[in-house]
Design a protein around this nucleic acid. Structure first.
Lengths: 212, 212
DNA sequence: TTGATTTTGTACCGCGCCGCACGATATCCG
DNA sequence: CGGATATCGTGCGGCGCGGTACAAAATCAA
């Protein structure tokens, strides 16, 4: 993807900001306040950029929002993929994933942020078909990733043949969704962890064919 | 609560709007666009009221939003209570509740609205402690209502003694949450119904002690 | 009919919003 | 060193925002 080495600088005045860090800062601002609730001044303050630079780099506010959402989804999908591909039991993988999700949702200063996609993108999704499609795609990929891993567990005998990977995968996604909503509502991390543990038990222990 | 009969009209000029209908109209507007995304002009258009009347009747925009949220939560809680108190099996009650929730979430014109509390109130919850508390209270009551009904089912022998009402109740709430998120993301009603059916199966069929 | 009372409806104010024009600045190339 | 190039940063313009002042209108009590 990177075509030129870092040493070859482009022609004009060098930019005074790091586009990646700026996008991350914008993401965190949108994450808390949503698209409609965030002013450009707040983004300027968060990124340290000035408005014309923002505009030149990312387009208008909505375009910046969508780039931030894409970044968030890409990072989440990558973390999920890694966790599911790890050589651990299904229960351990799910426990790890939910644990990391909770840590992400309650991280940062102030009240818990929840999931960017669930908590604020859904708000915009109804009036914006593109954002709606992005949220839908993210949810679909979440379902499919869980379902594939669960199907693997079933094939390896860790789940009974009667288990339905599609249903259990959706249940994993539902757990993510409820964790996101509850985090945003102020539920403390410990309670979320307990809820996640219960979910893992229900998902993996439904019949518990291999008590190990 | 009502002190005077309807016939005794108050002193001055009669109001030209129905407060209840106006609050409902404001609720539907907020439901779609959220607090920050809704302008007072939109509320004026939706309610048919003019701005000073709005202000006199409900206070400022945030106060109106909170009244709308309280109304939504009260109506939801009442419907839930009725459905859970009905003399039906747990599975039938849950099926009915999820069915009604889906119908509510996809009702109205245009893209599905999802759940007011989940989709837009969570957005405001992080910056507004009062709204956060309202969302938290609603979620808690949802959990408790489900848990109580599941505990009853267990006591009546419809669930195995090993079932944990608290965990299963949270799972019911999680189903509501994921239905709300997915509806907002554009998932069609049929897919939501299938997901709800799978959830009922997992919740009630965990062990299936009474195959009836 | 007249005054008291409450709501209506228009019009407005100050403010913050988004997006951009434009000159200044810093770097690269020859 | 000088021209070319790309970004910086101030500043602003037009507009929509939330909230309110004020007079007209509609009702009740006397």
């Amino acid at each position: 993807m990177v075509q030129k080495p870092v040493s070859s600088r482009p022609r004009g005045r060098p930019r005074a900001y790091d586009p990646d860090a700026a996008l991350q800062a914008a993401l965190e601002t949108f994450w808390k306040r949503g698209l409609a609730g965030t002013s450009l001044d707040e983004i300027v303050a968060a990124t340290g950029m000035n408005r014309p630079s923002l505009y030149a780099a990312f387009g208008d506010k909505r375009a910046l929002y969508m780039k931030a959402l894409a970044r968030y989804q890409a990072a989440s999908a990558e973390a999920l993929r890694d966790a599911l591909a790890a050589d651990t039991s299904l229960a351990d993988a799910l426990t790890w994933i939910f644990e990391r999700a909770i840590a992400l949702y309650v991280s940062g200063e102030g009240p818990a942020r929840g999931c960017f996609s669930v908590s604020t993108a859904t708000t915009e999704a109804i009036e914006d078909p593109e954002i709606r499609q992005m949220v839908a795609d993210g949810t679909l990929r979440l379902d499919q990733a869980f379902e594939a891993r669960i199907g693997r567990a079933q094939a390896e005998g860790d789940l009974p043949a009667s288990a339905r990977p599609e249903a259990l995968g959706a249940l994993c996604s539902a757990t993510i969704h409820t964790l996101a909503v509850r985090a945003r509502a102020g539920t403390p991390a410990e309670a979320l962890q307990e809820l996640a543990a219960q979910a893992v038990e229900i998902i993996c222990g439904s019949g518990s064919p291999k008590p190990r």
